[in-house]
Computed example of a mutant assay.
Amino acid sequence: MSYQLIELDVQATDNIACPHCQQLIINWQEEQYIQPCEHTLFIAMDIGFEYITDEFEQTMQHTVDDLHANDDQLNMFAELTASSYPEFIIMKSDLGAAGYFRYIGLTA
């Protein structure tokens, strides 16, 4: 497990771009605001996943289905950082509700 955490200083309604290719991963101008690029491993919130690649899910200690079934006991950040994926970046941003965050995982 080797990840780099980048805490974004953005509002919950701001777009978020991939630092590699500059594609807007979170794009509020689109009806489907989740727009993963080729570098995106996952897009998660403290309350569950919005997107995840099979490649990343296979490195997690619990499946997405297990996590969603037990979301009342979920610590998303702990689950993500316990992954055995070799190297990745986690961009953390405010979700707009007190104490809740969005996490965007990207290849390093």
Rank of each mutant, 00 (worst) to 15 (best):
A12M: 07
T13C: 03
N15K: 08
N15E: 02
A17H: 04
A17C: 12
C18H: 00
C18D: 03
P19M: 11
P19V: 11
P19S: 10
H20D: 12
C21E: 07
C21H: 00
Q23G: 08
L24P: 07
I25N: 06
I26N: 02
I26T: 01
N27T: 11
W28I: 09
W28R: 15
Q29I: 09
E30G: 09
E31G: 07
E31V: 07
Q32T: 15
Y33C: 09
Y33S: 08
I34D: 03
Q35W: 14
Q35M: 15
Q35D: 15
P36G: 13
E38L: 12
E38R: 13
E38T: 10
H39F: 02
H39C: 04
H39E: 09
T40F: 14
T40Y: 07
F42P: 07
F42Q: 03
A44P: 08
A44R: 01
D46S: 03
I47T: 05
E50R: 04
E50L: 07
Y51C: 06
I52E: 06
I52S: 04
T53M: 07
T53N: 06
D54L: 12
F56Q: 00
E57F: 04
E57I: 06
E57R: 09
T59R: 09
M60K: 05
Q61A: 13
Q61E: 14
Q61T: 14
H62M: 03
T63V: 04
V64I: 11
V64G: 06
D65S: 14
L67P: 01
L67D: 00
H68L: 08
H68K: 03
H68Q: 10
A69K: 14
N70C: 00
Q73I: 07
A78W: 13
A78R: 15
A78M: 14
A78V: 12
E79C: 13
E79Y: 05
E79P: 09
L80C: 02
A82G: 08
S84W: 11
Y85R: 00
Y85C: 02
P86I: 11
E87A: 15
E87W: 10
E87N: 15
I89G: 04
I89C: 09
I90W: 02
I90T: 05
I90F: 10
M91D: 07
M91Q: 14
K92F: 02
K92P: 03
K92C: 04
K92V: 09
S93K: 03
S93W: 00
D94R: 09
L95D: 08
A97P: 03
A98Q: 10
